[in-house]
Structures are given as structure tokens and as C-alpha cells.
């Protein structure tokens, strides 16, 4: 899961996967608002989940988009919820 999420984010950032680590912050990777929306769409499709995200208030859904690591943790949470 970690590698797939990193691959999705790397594709949006137009970077090699080796240059994207859990510590990377999304803003520093150069992902803009459209890139973010597209990355979330790709994550939803990849893991068959719904990410609560409103571009007007990115913090509202409780889905932490600060860093690659926080995204991985949030997706793991949603996937676990779905399995439960």
C-alpha cells in the first residue's frame, strides 16, 4: 500500500519514486490544488475508498494531507474501516 501511494504521489509531482519518502511534505513536492484533487481521485480508485476532502477546507475531513506519511496513515485507516 505504501509503495502504491508513493507511486501515485510521485506521478503527480513528476518525480522519481525514489525521491518521494514518507517524510516528504506534499507542498514541497510541488503538488498544487489540482494535483492534490487528482492524487486523491487516484487513491480512491486504487483502494476503492472515499476520501473525505473538500478543497475549500482541506482540514475539515480529518484526512491529513500534510506529508506522504500522513496520507499513507489516513489511507490505511480508511481501508481498515472498509474491512471492518
Amino acid at each position: 500500500m505504501r509503495d502504491r501511494i508513493i507511486a501515485i504521489i510521485a506521478e503527480q509531482a513528476v518525480l522519481d519514486v525514489a525521491d518521494v519518502t514518507p517524510e516528504s511534505r506534499l507542498a514541497e513536492l510541488g503538488i498544487d490544488s489540482l494535483g492534490l484533487v487528482e492524487a486523491i481521485f487516484a487513491i480512491e480508485e486504487a483502494f476503492d475508498i472515499s476520501v473525505p476532502f473538500n478543497a475549500n477546507d482541506p482540514a475539515a475531513g480529518g484526512f491529513d494531507l500534510t506529508s506522504v506519511g500522513s496520507v499513507i496513515a489516513a489511507v490505511e485507516g480508511l481501508v481498515a474501516q472498509k474491512a471492518a
Binding site: F41, N54, A55
Partner: peptide, 20 residues
């Protein structure tokens, strides 16, 4: 929906709590 700019609960222009 895909653009993630729609409000789930109402249109509140200029208000501090607006969300789409």
C-alpha cells in the same frame, strides 16, 4: 463532485465558515 469544491451543507458566500 469530482472537483471537490461543492459544499455538502449550504452556500455561505463571504462567511468565515463557507465551504463551497
Amino acid at each position: 463532485e469530482g472537483l471537490r469544491v461543492m459544499s455538502p451543507d449550504g452556500c455561505r458566500p463571504f462567511s468565515a465558515d463557507r465551504n463551497g
